[in-house]
Design a protein around this nucleic acid. Structure first.
Lengths: 204, 204
DNA sequence: GTGCAATTGCACGCCATTGTGCAAGTCCCG
DNA sequence: CGGGACTTGCACAATGGCGTGCAATTGCAC
């Protein structure tokens, strides 16, 4: 059992992956889900989870690492070589949307003050990129808001969360959600609604 | 001790009030704050809290009741006799802002799936009013959004939460926050930024 | 000042959860 | 068909929270 650290059997690998997958879903449903709930949902006994992850903290931390990597990657790829702030935001949000949806749990966890050490910290670089982009847009007059760029970044994040909730509650169609959210975010940044809609239509 | 239910001594009343106040602050800092944390913060022993509230649930429920009442009252008063949708939203948000800030804990609690029975339910009437207002604005062309009115309501709520966070983190000045948040909300609803700013300046 | 309500300071019992230990299984690779 | 990696099924100790009981104490009001 201690040898699981080498973890190279197919069975063990599959289990580990499934535990992570299920944990994501389960923690999304309830951020306080116990190890037992997660284990059962993964079709495994609690003891087995501890074979793969030394602690609850470690399990969540692994989840966070994966999420941060996926988010940062998607954002970087989407914005590569784009100079227009509005278009950059549009591409970024469109690309981030599915990833953020999958890892939505993080947003929920990051909102709670008491959680895994440093979720916010690990997301900070990503956020800083966004703040810089927004600042540039405000400076160039592409955006317009009474809020300073960092606050606007908060607002954008929360807006995504809100739209995800709306999808969850059946208020918005899943296929449309990404585009709608992007238009909404641009609009909130002061881009005229018509322009935002056109831009998103072109880009996606 | 059982007689505390009649609760008419000034001392008991003061304590009860202080417990509620402190609980609000403490639960805001950490939604999972224990009864002991709350009691200590209120300068009282845990046992005393149970003298005033039969359970943790009851304590929070009392908090929720107060919040819902305050919010509903402020909203109704602010919108009385206002017909223009944009102006109604502006007045509503401006009036709701300080109350929502005080009871911000609720938003945090309402976001968590597992909490006190029916926070969402008790806030539902307030939300429905807002949805109707947004719908009317969309119909009349005052607002513009790819999101349906109920989803837009979610977005507005989350935006307020985001701005409160921004204030908390020192990104926005507290005195400006209410107006800024209102402009941001109107902008997100598709009201041109300049118009939103002017409207808020007139109204506040 | 005295009396009564309120508060305190223990004492419980209960329950959920976390993390570990260990022996007996099970599965699959070679 | 072995044999080693993985899993299971207990059992355990340690926290830590909730809600309650009761005797002793405090403090306000009258």
């Amino acid at each position: 059992m201690t040898a699981m650290t080498t973890g190279n059997t197919s069975r063990a690998d599959a289990n580990r992956r499934r535990i992570l997958d299920v944990a994501l879903a389960e923690l999304l449903r309830d951020p306080d889900a116990s190890m037992d709930q997660i284990a059962r949902a993964a079709g495994v006994v609690r003891r087995t989870v501890y074979g793969h992850f030394p602690s609850r903290e470690a399990l969540i931390s692994t989840l966070v690492d994966g999420a941060v990597e996926a988010l940062a990657g998607a954002d970087a790829r989407a914005r590569a070589g784009v100079t227009d702030p509005a278009e950059a935001v549009a591409r970024s949000v469109l690309a981030l949307w599915p990833v953020a949806d999958r890892y939505r749990l993080l947003i929920a966890l990051a909102q709670r003050t008491v959680t895994v050490q440093g979720i916010r910290e690990r997301l900070a670089p990503l956020r800083e990129n966004k703040v810089r982009l927004l600042q540039r847009g405000l400076d160039e007059g592409a955006f317009s808001s009474p809020l300073p760029a960092p606050a606007l970044a908060y607002v954008h994040e929360q807006m995504l969360f809100a739209v995800m909730e709306a999808v969850n509650d059946g208020l918005v169609a899943a296929e449309e959600a990404g585009r709608s959210a992007t238009v909404a975010v641009l609009t909130a940044a002061g881009v005229p609604a018509a322009l935002a809609a056109r831009l998103v239509a072109e880009v996606s």
